[in-house]
């Protein structure tokens, strides 16, 4: 190819790169997914043990205390997962030399937080009213919707994780007694699978 052809191709490559980088938050690290997934699985193991203890105890054990404990575990896992996910993404953005806080990050945050906050309020009300059976599926479905909504502003693959979370949430409606396992699958296994595949696709070369 002659030199003008080459320079035109370079121009198009530049245009594409800048369009992508300016509209999407692309520093999301595969390790963030893996880390968040591991937090969720550890949380599920702790929650499982707490529930075992409750059911092994005598019939007068305090049910409200169990609920409070589980909410505490879930909140701790949420915060831990958020910190871990943020940390790896921060490290990646430092390595790539892109600012973590820009228009793209702001849009991503807004578009994922909106469904999450709405879902959070609904779940909080469910706890209040004692509709415990629906909490697992609500959490998964709202989280999945948040991911699908946010995927336009970050790596497109996040959309598929979102679909998987929504599907898991819907399926969980039909296996309510196995809620904790579905929870561990949705927030743990799916994140880890997603994280590994993203790491394989984007981070593998730079990490080595």
């Amino acid at each position: 190819m002659d030199t003008t052809g080459q320079s035109n191709l370079d121009a198009i490559r530049d245009i594409r790169k800048i369009m992508e980088r300016s509209s999407r938050f692309i520093s999301l690290s595969g390790w963030s997914g893996i880390g968040a997934g591991l937090c969720a699985i550890i949380g599920a193991i702790v929650a499982n043990r707490t529930m075992q203890q409750y059911y092994d105890a005598d019939r007068n054990a305090c049910f409200q205390c169990l609920v409070a404990d589980l909410v505490l575990i879930a909140s701790a896992v949420f915060v831990a997962a958020l910190i871990v996910a943020f940390l790896f993404t921060y490290l990646k953005s430092r390595k790539d030399g892109v600012a973590i806080w820009g228009t793209a990050a702001r849009r991503l945050l807004w578009n994922t937080m909106l469904p999450m906050v709405a879902g959070g309020i609904i779940i909080w009300k469910m706890l209040d009213l004692g509709y415990y059976e629906l909490i697992v599926s609500s959490a998964l479905v709202f989280y999945g919707l948040a991911l699908v909504n946010g995927s336009k502003y970050t790596m497109g693959e996040v959309r598929y994780l979102g679909y998987a979370e929504i599907a898991t949430g819907v399926i969980s409606l039909f296996v309510i007694s196995r809620g904790l396992y579905v929870w561990a699958f949705g927030f743990g296994v799916l994140h880890i699978v997603y994280g590994i595949s993203m790491w394989w696709k984007y981070d593998r070369k730079t990490d080595q």
Binding site: A11, D14, I15, R16, M19, S22, V98, A99, G102, T103
Partner: peptide
């Protein structure tokens, strides 16, 4: 110019971009 092409690429997909963000991108 590569710089002008870069500026236009960023502005065409964003409602508005500030100076520092452009500087970083390009």
């Amino acid at each position: 110019s590569r710089v002008r092409l870069g500026i236009m690429s960023a502005l065409v997909v964003n409602p508005s971009v500030n100076f520092n963000e452009l500087k970083e991108l390009i």
